[in-house]
C-alpha cells in the first residue's frame, strides 16, 4: 500500500522533547498541532524579532548623515511634486476636505506602510544572507522585523504630519486615536504578501523588480494622492482593490471622523486576516525547502 506523506516541515515532539526530521511529514501530525507549533515559535521569537529590528535600524541609519530624516524626504518630495503639478494645472486633483498637502501627506504615509513594508519584507530573507542557511531559527522573524522597520518609518512620518497639520491649521477628528487598530488589517495584508514574496524572492530574483513595479503602479491606481473620483470606471477598480478601502477608511478616521463603509471595511479586514493566516502557513510549510535553495 502506498503511504501518503504530506508536507515538509516536521517537528514531531514527543513528551521527551525529541525532534524528528524526516522527508514530507505525515498528515497525521495534525492540522491543529501545526498551528500550535507556529504560534509557539512566533511567541518564542519575540526577543529575536526585536533584536533584528534594532539591528536593521542601527545599520540603516548609522552611517547616514541625515539619519532618520530619510524617512521624511521621500514623501515630502513626492507630495511636493504633486502640489506643484496640481497648482500648475497639469493634473486636476479636485477638492479635498483638508488642504491638499496635508491630505496627500496623510495618504502617502499610510500607503508607505504597505509599500516600504512589502519591499522590505520580500527582500528580508535574501538580505538575511548566510544566517538563513547556516542557523536554524524561525525565519518569520526576519520578515516581521522588516515590517517593523516600515512601521517605525510611519511613526517618524507621524511627527512630520503633526507639523504639517499645525502649519495648515487642520484639526484631526478624535477618531484618529483609532488609527492604530485600523492599521492592523493593512499590516496583516502586507505581512501575508511579504511572507510569500520573501520565499519567492529567495528562489527567483525577479520578484523585487515585480514588487517595485507593482507598488509604483498601485500608488497611482489607489486613491492615495487624490480623493476618490466619481467615475464608474474607478468604482469598479476600487471595489477589487482592498488597499483602496483600507487607505481611504484609515484616512477617513482622521479627516471625517468615522469609517464611511463599516461593512466593507469589516469584510476586507477579515479577508486580510485570512490571507495572512494562509500565507503564514504556507511559509511555515515550505521554509526548509527554501533554505536548501536560497
Amino acid at each position: 500500500m502506498r503511504k501518503k506523506y504530506v508536507i515538509i516541515k516536521v517537528f514531531k515532539m514527543d513528551e521527551r522533547g525529541v525532534k524528528l526530521y524526516q522527508p514530507d511529514a505525515q498528515i497525521k501530525k495534525g492540522w491543529l498541532s501545526l498551528w500550535r507549533q507556529m504560534f509557539s515559535e512566533l511567541i518564542g521569537s519575540r526577543e529575536l524579532i526585536w533584536r533584528l529590528f534594532v539591528r536593521d535600524f542601527l545599520a540603516k541609519y548609522k552611517q547616514a548623515v541625515f539619519g532618520v530624516a530619510w524617512a521624511l524626504i521621500m514623501p515630502l518630495v513626492m507630495v511636493g511634486v504633486f502640489v506643484f503639478l496640481n497648482r500648475a494645472g497639469v493634473i486636476n486633483i479636485g477638492t479635498t476636505d483638508i488642504p491638499y498637502p496635508a491630505f496627500a501627506l496623510l495618504g502617502l504615509s499610510i500607503w508607505q506602510v504597505f509599500a516600504t513594508g512589502l519591499t522590505a519584507c520580500s527582500n528580508s530573507i535574501v538580505a538575511g544572507g548566510s544566517m538563513v542557511v547556516k542557523i536554524n531559527f524561525a525565519k518569520e522573524s526576519l520578515v516581521i522585523a522588516s515590517l517593523a522597520q516600515a512601521l517605525f518609518d510611519f511613526l517618524v512620518r507621524i511627527g512630520l504630519l503633526v507639523v504639517v497639520f499645525v502649519i495648515l491649521r487642520v484639526v484631526p477628528a478624535w477618531t484618529t486615536l483609532l488609527v492604530p487598530f485600523a492599521l492592523i488589517p493593512l499590516l496583516l495584508f502586507t505581512l501575508g504578501l511579504g511572507l510569500i514574496l520573501s520565499l519567492l524572492t529567495a528562489l527567483m530574483r525577479d520578484i523585487p523588480h515585480i514588487v517595485t513595479l507593482l507598488t509604483t503602479f498601485l500608488l497611482f491606481l489607489t486613491p492615495v494622492l487624490y480623493p476618490v473620483p466619481q467615475g464608474k470606471l474607478f468604482a469598479i477598480l476600487n471595489r477589487y482593490n482592498p488597499l483602496s478601502t483600507l487607505i481611504i477608511e484609515i484616512r477617513n478616521l482622521v479627516i471625517v471622523g468615522r469609517i464611511t463603509e463599516p461593512l466593507r471595511f469589516m469584510i476586507i479586514s477579515l479577508f486580510c486576516l485570512f490571507l495572512f493566516l494562509v500565507c503564514w502557513r504556507i511559509f511555515h510549510l515550505v521554509e526548509p525547502r527554501m533554505a536548501e535553495r536560497v
Binding site: K9, V18, K19, L20, Y21, Q22, P23, K134, P288, E292
Partner: peptide
C-alpha cells in the same frame, strides 16, 4: 534542522 532529509530520519 535547517534542511530536512530526503530519505531516512534524524532524531535529535
Amino acid at each position: 534542522g535547517i534542511f530536512m532529509p530526503d530519505k531516512g530520519t534524524i532524531e535529535i
